[in-house]
Design a protein around this nucleic acid. Structure first.
Length: 205
DNA sequence: CAATAGATCATCT
DNA sequence: GATGATCTATTGC
């Protein structure tokens, strides 16, 4: 079980440190392969940016708790509260690699494909059975917990801009395990994009 | 494979 | 009354 102190540091540090850790709920677990940091009052993309509200108060509370919100009216998304009380940093869990309880995941997700069970913030909550009821839950004790992996193979951390936001869209606050098959988005091809533009130029001329 | 439309509702203005 | 830290199916190349 990760101790409270694990979460009591800057959100960016927690986002990086959470990679490779294990998220467990009711016998169903996954290895975290993708996270995003949200910096609170200095970050217009963060829910906490406008100060505490009934919804976001948990982000301003003690670290090591869950902030779960409803996304686009449909999906429950899981955040981990970081930083000391009053400092509203948090980390969005964007993807996990299925480890245990895979049968239950397949049932909840209505799909068999391993790579499609929990490769997105809305998908992993559905796969693990995490809902708005877990908002405010203490991650250091209770049904929803985080752990050190039993076997830790080394991995490389890659960085990119965050996904799906309109503010600070260029801030490099998304962290993921390089080469993982379980990411919410696949890597951009290394080449440039000039080839595509030719077609449009040809159309005009 | 890439782009896009539609679903759907708690939260805040 | 507008707005998303998304997902899926569908359409178009």
């Amino acid at each position: 079980m990760l101790p409270r102190g694990f979460y009591e540091r800057p959100a960016i540090d927690v986002a990086r440190a959470l990679l490779g850790k294990v998220l467990l709920h009711g016998g169903v677990s996954g290895r975290i392969v993708e996270t995003e940091a949200y910096l609170g009052l200095t970050d217009a993309a963060a829910h906490a940016f406008h100060g505490p509200t009934p919804r976001t108060q948990v982000i301003f509370g003690p670290p090591g708790h869950a902030y779960v919100y409803l996304s686009y009216g449909i999906h429950d998304c899981l955040n981990v509260v970081a930083e000391p009380p009053g400092s509203p940093g948090c980390v969005l869990i964007r993807a996990v690699e299925p480890l245990t309880g895979i049968a239950a995941m397949r049932r909840r997700r209505h799909t068999d494909r391993l790579e499609n069970l929990a490769n997105g913030p809305g998908k992993l909550t559905q796969a693990l059975g995490i809902t708005l009821r877990h908002n405010g839950a203490d991650l250091t004790r209770g049904a929803l917990t985080l752990h050190e992996p039993s076997s830790a193979e080394p991995f490389e951390i890659a960085i990119s801009p965050r996904v799906g936001i309109t503010h600070n869209a260029d801030w490099p606050l998304r962290f993921y395990i390089a080469g993982s098959r379980f990411l919410s988005r696949h890597l951009k091809p290394p080449g440039d994009a000039t080839l595509k533009k030719h077609a449009q130029i040809d159309d005009i001329s």
